[in-house]
Structures are given as C-alpha cells and as structure tokens.
Design a protein around this nucleic acid. Structure first.
Length: 208
DNA sequence: GACCAGGCACATC
DNA sequence: GATGTGCATGGT
C-alpha cells in the first residue's frame, strides 16, 4: 500500500481533523513545545492557564520570569525544562524577528528550519510543527505515531531516522500545506485510537 | 499501580 | 555512531 492510498483510507475513515487546535499561530508554537512527549489533554490545561492569566502573547511570555512560567505550565509535565525551552524560543523570536511572528514569514523555509533547530529544546518535530501549522509552510511533520504506523506496515525500519521518513512522505505526495496538515493530523488520530504502543497487533486497523 | 503521551538534550561507552 | 537516561503531569 502506498502513502497516497494510506491517506485516502485515513480520510475516508476519520474525515477532516481541523488542525492545529489553536486560536493563533503563536498558540501553535507554544503548544508545539508543550506537547513534546506529552498528551494533548495535559497541554490544553497548561495553555488554558496561560490564557486565563492573559499571558499567551510573545511579549508577555518574554517578560515573565521563567519560574512563574514553569508553574503556569505545570500540568503539561517536564515543566521546568519546558519553561526553559519556551524562553529559549522567545529569546530567538525577539532576537531575530523583533518578537513578531509575521516577520518570520519573510524568511525562506530552509533558513527558518535551520534557525528553529538551533534553539535549545526545538528538535525536528517541533520545528516542523511550527513551520507547517503556525507558518503554513509545506513541510511534513513526523512523529512517534507516524513512525509506528510505517514500521508496523513494514514501510520503514523501526529505527529509521527522522529526515528519512520525512523525505519518504515529501517525495511521494504532492507538495502542499493542506495535504501535509491533514495527513499528519490523521496519523495522530490513527495512533491515538488504534495504533497503540503496547499492542503490536491490531485486528481492527482501518488501514487493513 | 503500571503504562503511556503529538521529544529533546546530554552523558557515556 | 549507537545506546541509555532525565525530564513530570495526568488519563486509562
């Protein structure tokens, strides 16, 4: 089964996913860092905390102490390290783009990706999530679910590197923000509902 | 109570 | 270059 067929099956099974669940590009970026190895339910609590305190803007988060930020995002787990990562990202945003997300849109994709990856705490998945879902650049996001699905259907090896998997998608799909957005979201849906880590065999996989 | 979640950096060999 | 470990909350 090729990747286009996989997409069609997923879409027929689940329908549109309306990603990313956020009210602004900045919220996407914050969410992308907070959701590292963490369930979205916990991330939502953390983001709601920031919203209730009216702190979910680049300027506000840039100014508040790291300690205070850590307490606010506590429900998301790893809160000390994530506060540090958010701060590192905000430092980057103000240093290179005067704190304005709009200004990032002028840079080209490879440059942006390199810059994001240079921030401590932003790895390939977080960088690509920001590029695709916040900045609407045509980059495919690879996550643990993506990897698991491909490995279980024998399309890659379990330990295949990120960039290799990403290229697999980007070479075999028509390049576009809309498709990449929906595809990744559908893979997460599949992973959450069917492709469980502790159950290597899945009899009811919609891809079968 | 165990297991897992929309990763990443760093230590050690 | 590969392999292991810390980071932490909250749902199932």
């Amino acid at each position: 089964m090729n990747l286009v067929k996989v997409y069609k099956k997923l879409y027929l099974s689940f329908g549109p996913q309306y990603w990313w669940p956020a009210e602004s590009p900045f919220e996407v970026m914050v969410g992308a860092i907070l959701t590292q190895n963490t369930s979205w339910l916990n991330v939502r609590k953390a983001i709601n905390n920031l919203k209730q305190h009216k702190l979910l803007t680049a300027r506000k988060l840039y100014k508040i102490p790291e300690k205070k930020l850590a307490l606010l995002i506590k429900p998301a787990g790893y809160y000390n390290i994530k506060a540090k990562r958010l701060k590192a990202f905000l430092d980057f945003l103000f240093k290179h783009y005067r704190g304005e997300i709009q200004h990032m849109l002028h840079a080209n994709i490879p440059t942006l990706r390199r810059q994001l990856l240079s921030v401590k705490g932003i790895g390939p998945e977080t960088a690509d999530s920001i590029l695709l879902y916040a900045l609407e650049k045509p980059i495919f996001v690879v996550d643990a679910y993506t990897k698991r699905m491909l490995a279980r259907h024998n399309l890659i090896k379990e330990d295949a590197p990120y960039e290799k998997i990403q290229k697999l998608f980007m070479r075999n799909l028509k390049k576009g923000v809309k498709l990449f957005n929906e595809y990744h979201a559908l893979l997460v849906k599949l992973g959450k509902d069917f492709c469980h880590k502790s159950k290597p065999k899945c009899d009811i996989c919609p891809l079968k």
